[in-house]
C-alpha cells in the first residue's frame, strides 16, 4: 500500500459547453513529494485542482487522492486534503483567530482543542500578534499565510495550493516558498499550480507543463531544460520597425520578446558558428542589430518553446 501514489489521475477530461478545458490529463504524484502544475492562464490548472479536490466532477477519466476515488469516495478524500485556492478564502470581517477557530470547529475539533490549534498555527505562521485583528487590515502576504494555516487545522495528507503566490510582493513570495518547503520537509504531499517558472523550479520535485488542457511535458526542472537548446541569443534591435520586421521574420522561433527594450531572443546551441549564422540571417546588412547577448536557457524558455506561446515579458 505504501507505494501507492498520493495523487493519481488517468485521462481526466472536462468540458464547459463547447470549450474543452481538460483534454486527457494523466498525473502521478508520489507520497511526500512536491509537484507543480505549470501553465498560463486558461491552461486548465485550476480545473485540475478542483477535480482532485472533489469540487468538480470530471467528464471523463478518473482520479484517486490519498487512496480514495475523488468521485465515489469524495468524503474520504475531503478528510485527507486541504485546499488553498487562488483567492484568499478567509473572512475579512473576522479576526485571524476567529477564522482559524471556525475552520477547526468545521473540522470537528472540540472547542478547547480548536482554540489551542488556532494559537499553535498563528504562532507557526508568525501571525500571533495579528491574531486578534480583523483580516481586512492584513497585508496580502499575511492573508495568504492565514489562508494556508486555515488548511492545516487538521494535518492533511495532501495539500493543494492553487497559485499560492500570485499577486504577492517578492518578499512575501519568498516567505511563502519557505513555508511550502517546510511543509514538504514534514512529509506532506503538495500539489501546487503556478504561472511562475522560478517558483516551480525552486519548490517542485517534478513539474508538469500544462497547455490548452494537455500536459505537454513532465519531468524534473533539469530534465525539462534538457529538452531545448542550452542557450538563448538576445538581440537588441536598433529601432521599432526593425524590431517588428525581425520578430515577424522569425515568428515561431522567437522565445523571448521585450518590445520596450526592443529585445528578442532565439534559441541557440551557443556555438560561434550558429550565432554567426543567426546574426547573418537576421541582419544581412549589419545595420539592424545594435547589440547581442548569449544567456543560459531558463525554464521560461523551455515553457515557451514547448507551448509555442510567446508572451510579452513585462519585466517582473
Amino acid at each position: 500500500m505504501s507505494d501507492e501514489p498520493a495523487i493519481e489521475a488517468v485521462g481526466l477530461r472536462k468540458t464547459y459547453g463547447p470549450a474543452t478545458v481538460l483534454d486527457g490529463i494523466d498525473l502521478r504524484v508520489p507520497k511526500g513529494s512536491v509537484f507543480a502544475l505549470l501553465g498560463p492562464n486558461g491552461a486548465g490548472k485550476t480545473t485540475t485542482v478542483r477535480i482532485l479536490a472533489t469540487l468538480t466532477r470530471p467528464d471523463g477519466g478518473s482520479a484517486r487522492v490519498a487512496g480514495h476515488d475523488v468521485v465515489t469516495q469524495a468524503r474520504q478524500v475531503r478528510r485527507a486534503i486541504s485546499l488553498t485556492g487562488q483567492y484568499a478564502a478567509v473572512d475579512e470581517l473576522q479576526t485571524g483567530t476567529e477564522n482559524l477557530r471556525m475552520m477547526a470547529r468545521l473540522r470537528r475539533l472540540p472547542r478547547a482543542r480548536a482554540r489551542e490549534r488556532a494559537a499553535e498555527l498563528l504562532e507557526r505562521f508568525e501571525l500571533t500578534e495579528a491574531g486578534g485583528r480583523r483580516v481586512a487590515g492584513y497585508s496580502g502576504g499575511m492573508r495568504r499565510r492565514l489562508d494556508l494555516a486555515c488548511g492545516l487545522v487538521t494535518d492533511p495528507e495532501v495539500i493543494f495550493l492553487d497559485e499560492p503566490t500570485t499577486g504577492l510582493d517578492p518578499r512575501s513570495r519568498r516567505a511563502m516558498w519557505d513555508l511550502v518547503a517546510e511543509l514538504a520537509a514534514g512529509g506532506v504531499t503538495v500539489l501546487l499550480t503556478t504561472q511562475y517558472l522560478e517558483e516551480a523550479d525552486r519548490l517542485a520535485d517534478r513539474i508538469a507543463l500544462l497547455d490548452n488542457g494537455r500536459i505537454v511535458a513532465e519531468g524534473t526542472a533539469t530534465e525539462l531544460k534538457e529538452q531545448v537548446n542550452a542557450s538563448r541569443l538576445d538581440l537588441t534591435m536598433t529601432d521599432a520597425p526593425t524590431f517588428d520586421a525581425a520578430a515577424h521574420a522569425l515568428r515561431d522561433r522567437v522565445i523571448y520578446l521585450d518590445s520596450t527594450r526592443r529585445v528578442l531572443g532565439v534559441s541557440t546551441d551557443g556555438s560561434a558558428a550558429h550565432i554567426r549564422a543567426l546574426l547573418d540571417e537576421i541582419d544581412p546588412t549589419r545595420t539592424t542589430v545594435e547589440r547581442f547577448a548569449v544567456r543560459d536557457t531558463t525554464l521560461d524558455d523551455v515553457f515557451l518553446a514547448l507551448t509555442g506561446q510567446i508572451k510579452e515579458t513585462t519585466g517582473v
Binding site: 479536490a53 472533489t54 469540487l55 475531503r78 486534503i81 478564502a89 473540522r107 486555515c150
Partner: peptide, 9 residues
Amino acid sequence: GVVDRFRSM
C-alpha cells in the same frame, strides 16, 4: 472562494 474551501472540508 469561501464556498470552495467549505466544500473541500
